[in-house]
Computed example of a mutant assay.
Amino acid sequence: MTLEFLTHPSLSSFSHGFFTRRGGVSTGAYASLNCGLRSEDDPAAVRENRERVRVALGAGALRALRQVHGARAVDAASGWDVVPEADAMVCAEPDVALGVITADCAPVLLADPEARVVGAAHAGWRGAVGGILEATLAAMEELGAQRARIRAVVGPCIAQPSYEVGRDVYQAVGSLEFLASGRDADHWQFDLAGYCASRLAGIADVALMGMDTLTDEARFFSHRRRTLAGGGPLGHQISAIMA
């Protein structure tokens, strides 16, 4: 199966891709481009999948993080001996691809076309509320980017009709703008992509890919789909960008 990834015109001057689950070597529930190492998939298969992503992007190196649903952004230019716990990376080096792993959370790719500074963020509701996207913008500015020039794309993630949340999210978000009424007074449908876009205030442009990872089983892994099915193995897709 051919490696499949989605791109967006807003980032057309950068090598980037929102990779689907197609085109890898993993098998069974992880078929086939599972890029998440924190699973029971064969680590050698995951490494091969990540290598295919690196080659597809034309990168010399593909960096990834130990994601923790936090608000820390790190500079990935020099790499690291121990993978840091963080949920976003930035870089101004032209040969380094930044990859974030998702399975319903929002992958957000960002770039300043003039400064040639890029960023990649993993934004679940906790990270988005906690400020991971603002932290990414600030880290890009430290490398010479200007907020008013930055363009961002929120990639495939769980869509509002599929994303039922409880009172914890309602209280954390603190606004009904991105919460539609749910099945009862204690449940809402959360617009994660729209909320992420709202946290990127002041940048040049924010675009949404508008794809639902839960309903599109052929192309995307989904944590919520797995939960609704009663559990089991879970793969993860990767989204990446390089300067």
Rank of each mutant, 00 (worst) to 15 (best):
F190Q: 04
Y170F: 14
A71T: 15
A172V: 12
S13E: 15
V53M: 03
G230Q: 08
F18C: 03
F19Q: 01
A135C: 04
S181Y: 00
C157G: 10
A159T: 08
R199I: 12
P113D: 14
A123W: 03
F178A: 03
R219H: 15
L143P: 03
A180S: 13
S181P: 01
V82L: 13
P113E: 12
S15C: 07
F18Q: 09
L65F: 05
M242P: 02
A243N: 10
L133G: 03
C157I: 02
L192A: 02
W188K: 04
R66L: 13
A185F: 05
L176S: 14
G232D: 11
L110T: 06
G60H: 11
I101E: 01
F19S: 08
S162Y: 14
V100K: 05
F5S: 09
C157Y: 02
F190C: 01
L179I: 08
R63F: 13
P161C: 10
V90Q: 03
Q160K: 11
T102Q: 10
I238D: 02
L143V: 13
R38V: 12
E48S: 04
E134V: 13
G79C: 07
R72W: 00
Y163D: 12
L179M: 07
A76Y: 12
D41S: 13
G127M: 04
A197K: 01
M140E: 05
A71E: 11
A121F: 05
D205Y: 01
H223I: 01
Q160E: 15
M242S: 03
R116V: 09
L6D: 08
A29I: 08
A145V: 10
A106M: 02
L65E: 09
C157V: 04
A56T: 13
V129N: 12
A29F: 14
D216K: 05
G174W: 13
D205S: 15
Q67P: 00
W188G: 04
L3K: 09
V108D: 03
